[in-house]
Design a protein around this nucleic acid. Sequence first.
DNA 1: CTTAGTGCAAACCGTTTGCAAATGC
DNA 2: GCATTTGCAAACGGTTTGCACTAAG
Lengths: 168, 168
Amino acid sequence: MYNVIHTMMEREETRIFHDYLKRTRLKHTAQRDLILDVFLDTEDHVSSEDLYHLVKVKDPTVGFTTIYRTLKLLVECGLARELEFHDGRMLYEHEYKHTHHDHLICTQCGRLIEFYDEQIESLQDDIVRRYGFKSLRHSHRIFGICAECQQAEKDAEKVGHHAVALTN
Amino acid sequence: MYNVIHTMMEREETRIFHDYLKRTRLKHTAQRDLILDVFLDTEDHVSSEDLYHLVKVKDPTVGFTTIYRTLKLLVECGLARELEFHDGRMLYEHEYKHTHHDHLICTQCGRLIEFYDEQIESLQDDIVRRYGFKSLRHSHRIFGICAECQQAEKDAEKVGHHAVALTN
DNA sequence: CTTAGTGCAAACCGTTTGCAAATGC
DNA sequence: GCATTTGCAAACGGTTTGCACTAAG
């Protein structure tokens, strides 16, 4: 019931999507609207599978395939950004009105930390210019261990030492 | 025949690999030696499949699996670096005595251009420090169209215009 | 009523794994 | 001889595709 109400108070993103569909002569369907809506309700990063499960809750008849195909449309119309995760999966994040950023990726817990550095961005522009390259997008990922996992590691070590002390 | 001679004049990398095998109590096999040797003879970037075919020429009995498993060992002992390509495949490049660098990737022809920027590297260090992150590796890729493909595009456009002019 | 979208199942593709036989040490 | 490695075939996992059916415009 409140699904209907929810879609009534049209978000700016919905309008962008509908315009895009019209412009490219694609059809406006209930599934596409639902998927966009569920995507907009997420925070941070979702995988296609995450989104599939979230959509399933609201309409269990929607298939995998439609999720993938719709996510692609969202990327094309600038509402979503694709991000290659650490294990090869794709993650999706909001793109509209979100400033560009890159990621620190914890290889232990999968946590994503966003960073942005003006200087790096402009140095990138220099590099691209130097090679006569036409830059379309970039992916700057730093892999490592986040502060929390480092702490957890240290804690585990302590416990380990205790255990050794006790068993000796 | 000259395979034997070739392996006789042992490269520094071969020694590193053998040391690594000994250290980790892994076995020294003809396949592993051959794969390393073929890998060292490549330039730039090879996919596992590229390497598989190159190895096949010298010994057609070697299987896929051994290539994959050996490449992993080469990464572990610091002789090879894994690079996520544009389409999800992995590429391998020489790591030993090769300075670190990142890549411009042409999404049209797949060309890889290496770049290195000291300032970006040190800005990265700053960022990592700011978040208490322990950096293990990074992947900085700029996707776009290389100078050659841009030129080719322009040339194609010209031809296109001619064609239109002629058919009109 | 024409064209595009949907859901399903099957295909895909690079990579990984289980296993029996072969090999290093 | 014991453990590791090999090559094969089959499994995997995320994504894509072919197709008959349904729905949008």
